[in-house]
Design a protein around this nucleic acid. Structure first.
Lengths: 138, 138
DNA sequence: TGACGATATCTGCCTAAGCAGCTAATTTGC
DNA sequence: GCAAATTAGCTGCTTAGGCAGATATCGTCA
């Protein structure tokens, strides 16, 4: 039963997150925070609900994630004037300075865990995971 | 960047857990609780620290997990008389009655997410994940 | 024997994610 | 034009996991 796919996914994801968080620790940011920051930096999400949709997350949990990022001075929240329900998100100068430092760290940890994998094998695994995701969507 | 392996693993694992938890809800137990219960039921772990080792988890978090299982009346804790540091774990009658109901639910949800996968593909994916785990161990 | 290190468990503090319920603002439908 | 539904964001409650520190017990070795 340790061999269940669900358990394996859980374990691997946990190891990855722990390893990345350990490397990120000197920068005073976590993997989850970095992911959120990146979405904002890329312009893929300007509001909290866009973030939730693009990460399949909960809005309540996102509010608190944004609280943490704002409190660290990495993002700014501004109530929109056109639609006053919306809070527009943007990176502060500190956020803009921080976020390019992060991808190399994630890549390094990922490569450590992918030692011995061919490019084909990596692509195969990603294809499998995308198929599972699309199976989940119905 | 939504295409990073780490992000995909995170997403798939999340969807699986959410789907299993939804199915388990009428039984008033969660996926994480069920995993712990199963380890105890199988006799693979008679103590908290054995559980932690076999799941690569934290002892503090395990204490609280066992609190929840004990509070639900599914497990029993008994201080060992030979080594008084140890707390021996066992299933109550309720726990023994509950745990055989759980694997079919996990299998069902897993199969939904694996629609269209051949047995070979599943084995390949599991092999990949085990390789990543073993890469993590050094 | 008695000090020291290792082990087992527990507690407090933190991040994170999910659910339900709430308010305010906007859009839709009659 | 206005009631109803929808959307955006927030708060409280819960589970879960990680880290650090505390306590009690055990094993070892001088």
């Amino acid at each position: 039963m340790d061999e269940s796919l669900g358990f394996l996914l859980h374990q691997v994801r946990g190891r990855l997150v722990t390893a990345i968080d350990a490397e990120l620790e000197p920068l005073d940011i976590t993997w989850a925070q970095w992911g959120t920051l990146l979405k904002i930096a890329n312009g893929r999400a300007n509001t909290a609900s866009e973030l939730c949709r693009s990460m399949a997350g909960d809005t309540g949990s996102m509010t608190r994630m944004l609280d943490r990022l704002e409190q660290k001075g990495l993002i700014r929240r501004e109530r929109s004037s056109e639609d006053r329900r919306i809070v527009q998100l943007s990176l502060t100068e500190a956020g803009q300075k921080l976020y390019p430092q992060l991808p190399p760290i994630a890549v390094k940890v990922l490569n450590q865990h992918l030692r011995g994998f061919s490019r084909d094998e990596l692509e195969t695994m990603k294809r499998f995971l995308r198929r599972m995701l699309s199976n989940a969507d119905d």
